[in-house]
Design a protein around this nucleic acid. Structure first.
Length: 802
RNA sequence: GCCGUGGUGGCGGAAUUGGUAUACGCAGCGGACUUAAAAUCCGUGCCCGAAAGGGAUGGGAGUUCGAGUCUCCCCCGCGGCACCA
């Protein structure tokens, strides 16, 4: 038989699998289901990167394994195809995004097929197709009709380079846009929002019910930012009404010395005739409005504010009045938009109080009675002092007691805000809303969906949405709805497209529903979802929100879409840095596949290290996996040439064989592919040194099939099998081969290893001890020793201690 | 600053409940085959030491007969959040 040459076999099998539709779902009803899903890629012009290869290979191994274990496996692939890069490219070159996207998708599909990935191509979806976005629009309208999508004027993040509004999530901590890198500015615009905050409780609680990486759950929690506290009212002194504040430290109420409004607080307008210095206050508010949240902080931490002249409030539990300020360090969108300041126990309030010469009343001391510095705020909880009847209480006790006494209420606040989905861009899903001549919004009726994206637009941005220039769109709108109607010209954030695609895969060609109810009931939730950790906040939060919204509206009977989630780690360049064009360390999958074949590329990517770890690529190490496949080829070659000779297979070989089966099974189930591959290597190393027969060859090929689908299919055929190896049942192990009749026991003296002995299985302490002291290297340490204790662990270890 | 996560040979990395640290692979070294090279195969393989032995899992302490694994303190890397009261 000739040498192993992947070029000669991989294409052959890929073509055959495609022709036979080998990986479509069959037998949906009889077998247990398994839905294994990849985060679908944005089809960029660069083609697949190593992260995709790692991601897709990992799920492919599991999909193939589950099929062999008798599951009906749903394993689809699609394209998150709307988005800025294609549009920006169009602005530069004039080539329409439709064209570049279609080219990119072709290239992605070619690369994916060259990897031998077992997707069900019948179910391919692309978010940019009218068949798909028709249902994105339907989803928008469902939310709209149920009050979960609304339009309001809002201060929004405006990206002056991409000429679009951004979600908070798309603005980096330094105040620049994630995409363009431009400094984001503030602008007041009418925008569409989804009411994700309606589901905030479930979004937090249900995190307890999913099998997700700890860090991802934690990131979601951080983002949602739940905190328990109290709402307490401070009445105005001399006129009706009061200021409600939110605090998590009600225990410090007796130390509150002033009140601060955020500049956007609506109550300021209501009481403006009481404010003697309104002019000054108003100009401060105006100034603050022009700043981003980021700007407000980054001014070297220096806090600014203006006192409200003529306004003060009564302390709810003390006979005191407190001054009131407006200051932009207080956020309008969190809590009640106003705070009680306790400078003795809050860094920000301390800073502000120091600057403006305000009172600082310490009311908490450490529980252990230690002395604290008078020059800094004391931030930790402790015991109350100077708090009248509450003195001596701990912070925890006082929070409730003080809230009650002050006629406040316990309250939970969240950091999460509603999701702004309007984008002033072309290459996205049109928002299916028309405005009548009076400017009132109306949903576009179902019969006009999909509401098509026009193609008579220029791509160069003008600061308005590109759709506004489309003659066809305006004519269409007036033809259908009447003279004077105009339609919404913003498109949706592409995260909307990608937040429900996992439903569409269940029923991609359905033109009456987003997906058939029975199919949803059958396949959901996703059993394993795999993708990059960069989506731990946005995509996953939005997908969970949609699922919960659809559940509430009766379309689903579950609230969490992804039962189990895992992230593949980042594949670094050979220099241990993140792959990037500028570093010139990008490993191109096409080049690797061309050099070694898909099977080697798949296996090496999995052999790099633990799936979830960040690990560097190494172009020298890959040869090891390639050699391994060459040896597998050799094992079969030897078998074929000696087929007629009678081979006696030793028990040692059988034991290794069954151990390998068990290890490979367990490791695949727990996604530890690197060690599964090691086990296969050990098995092959043993076969190369001992006689084996057809059984060992079959086991080897079946175990290896999920990892290296081409070579195993080829060799399976060569040993005379007629059916595809990928429809064979996966190997089972026989426990009796894993039980040994003797055990190697480690002999230690004072905890140091001095030798090993072999004992019958389950030998008792007495027998083991007697055998151990005969060991020459042990004997010399035990001579002339008295009071020897013996620690004995059956079948494992004996330790002499003195 | 807060939350999470990680630190093991020259390199990538293994190590069920605490029980022979370094599996598997790369590179290295020695050898076989070959006119030669490539490819392939066999052997070797943490450090110090001639050996006996001793020392090693970021650093330091502790629990234990026994610690990569458990506890505490510190250092460093990575990810997230950060004026959220």
């Amino acid at each position: 038989m000739e040498r192993y040459n992947p070029k000669k076999i991989e294409k052959k099998w890929q073509d055959r699998w495609e022709k036979e539709g080998a990986f479509g779902v069959r037998d949906e009803s009889k077998k247990p289901k398994y839905y294994v899903l990849d985060m679908f890629p944005y089809p960029s012009g660069q083609g697949l990167h190593m992260g995709h290869i790692e991601n897709f290979t990992a799920t492919d191994i599991l999909a193939r394994y589950k099929r062999m274990c008798g599951f009906s496996v749903l394993h689809p692939m699609g394209w998150d195809a709307f988005g800025l890069p294609a549009e920006n490219y169009a602005i530069k070159t004039g080539i329409p995004p439709q064209e570049t996207t279609s080219t990119a998708i072709h290239n992605f599909r070619r690369q994916i097929q060259a990897m031998g990935l077992s997707y069900d191509w019948e179910r391919e979806v692309g978010t940019q197709t009218p068949e798909y976005y028709r249902w994105t629009q339907w989803l928008f309208l469902v939310l709209y009709k149920n009050g979960l999508a609304y339009k309001k004027e809002a201060k929004v993040n405006w990206d002056p380079v991409d000429n679009t509004v951004l979600a908070n999530e798309q603005v980096l901590p330094d105040g620049t846009a994630e995409r363009s890198g431009a400094k984001v500015i503030q602008k007041d615009l009418e925008q569409w929002f989804f009411k994700i905050t309606d589901f905030v409780q479930e979004l937090v609680c249900d995190l307890d019910t999913v099998d997700w990486p700890q860090s991802t759950v934690q990131n979601q929690r951080n983002w949602i930012g739940r905190s328990e506290g109290s709402e307490i009212e401070f009445e105005f002194d001399g006129f009706d009404g009061g200021v409600r504040v939110f605090t998590t430290r009600a225990d410090t109420l007796m130390g509150a010395t002033y009140i601060v409004f955020s500049p956007e607080h609506p109550q300021l307008q209501e009481i403006k005739n009481k404010i003697k210095n309104w002019k000054e206050v108003e100009s401060y508010i105006q100034e603050a409005r022009n700043k981003t949240d980021r700007d407000r902080i980054s001014e070297k931490g220096e806090k600014t504010g203006v006192v409200l002249d003529g306004v003060s409030v009564k302390h709810p539990l003390k006979d005191e009045t407190l001054p009131v300020f407006v200051a932009d360090f207080v956020l309008s969108h969190y809590g009640t938009g106003a705070i009680m300041a306790v400078p003795a126990h809050d860094e920000r309030d301390w800073e502000f109080a120091t600057k403006y010469g305000l009172n600082i009343n310490r009311v908490i001391v450490p529980e252990d009675g230690s002395v604290i510095s008078p020059d800094t705020p004391y931030l930790t909880e402790g015991v109350l002092t100077y708090s009248g009847e509450f003195d001596g209480m701990t912070s925890a006790e006082a929070k409730e007691a003080i809230t009650k006494k002050a006629k406040g209420a316990l309250k939970v606040s969240y950091r999460l805000r509603d999701w702004l989905i309007s984008r002033q861009r072309y290459w996205g899903c049109p928002i299916p809303i028309v405005y009548d001549p009076d400017g009132n919004p109306h949903p576009i009726p179902d019969e006009h969906l999909p509401w098509l994206l026009p193609d008579d637009v220029e791509f160069v941005p003008h600061g308005t949405s590109p759709l506004a220039q489309s003659k066809e769109l305006q004519e269409r709108t007036e033809r259908i709805f009447g003279k004077g109607y105009r339609c919404e010209v913003d498109t949706m954030d592409t995260f909307v497209d990608s937040s429900w695609y996992f439903f569409r895969f269940l029923d991609p060609h359905n033109d009456t529903e987003f997906a058939d109810k029975q199919r949803i009931a059958h396949w959901m939730p996703v059993d394993l979802y795999m993708g990059g950790a960069e989506h731990t906040v946005l995509h996953l939060l939005y997908a969970r929100f949609f699922t919960k919204a659809l559940q509430t509206l009766g379309y689903l009977d579950f609230g969490e879409p992804f039962a189990k989630l895992r992230h593949q780690g980042i594949v670094l360049g050979e220099d241990h840095n993140k792959m990037s064009k500028s570093k010139g360390n990008i490993v191109n999958p096409d080049v690797v596949v061309d050099a070694y074949g898909a099977d080697t590329t798949r296996m090496y990517t999995m052999f790099l290290g633990a799936l979830e770890d960040t690990k560097p690529w190494n172009s020298e190490n890959i040869i090891g996996v390639h050699r391994f496949l060459g040896r597998v080829w050799g094992v079969v070659d030897v078998f074929l040439s000696q087929k007629d000779a009678q081979q006696t297979v030793g028990d040692d070989v059988l034991r290794v064989q069954h151990r390998a089966i068990k290890k490979v099974r367990n490791d695949i189930e727990s996604l530890r592919y690197n060690t599964a591959i090691s086990a296969l290597m050990e098995y092959v190393n043993v076969l190369l040194k001992h006689p084996y027969s057809v059984e060992q060859v079959r086991v080897l090929l079946v175990l290896l099939a999920p990892f290296a689908p081409h070579i195993t299919e080829e060799l399976w055929e060569r040993i005379g099998e007629k059916e595809s190896i990928h429809s064979q049942p996966f190997c089972k192990y026989d426990e009796s081969y894993l039980v040994f009749d003797s055990a190697t026991i480690v002999v230690q003296v004072n905890g140091k290893v001095r030798g090993t002995i072999t004992m019958p299985l389950d030998a008792d302490k007495e027998a083991t001890q007697q055998e151990a002291i005969k060991h020459s290297n042990v004997k010399k340490y035990l001579e002339n020793k008295k009071d020897i204790d013996t620690i004995f662990v059956p079948n494992t270890l004996i330790n002499f201690v003195f």
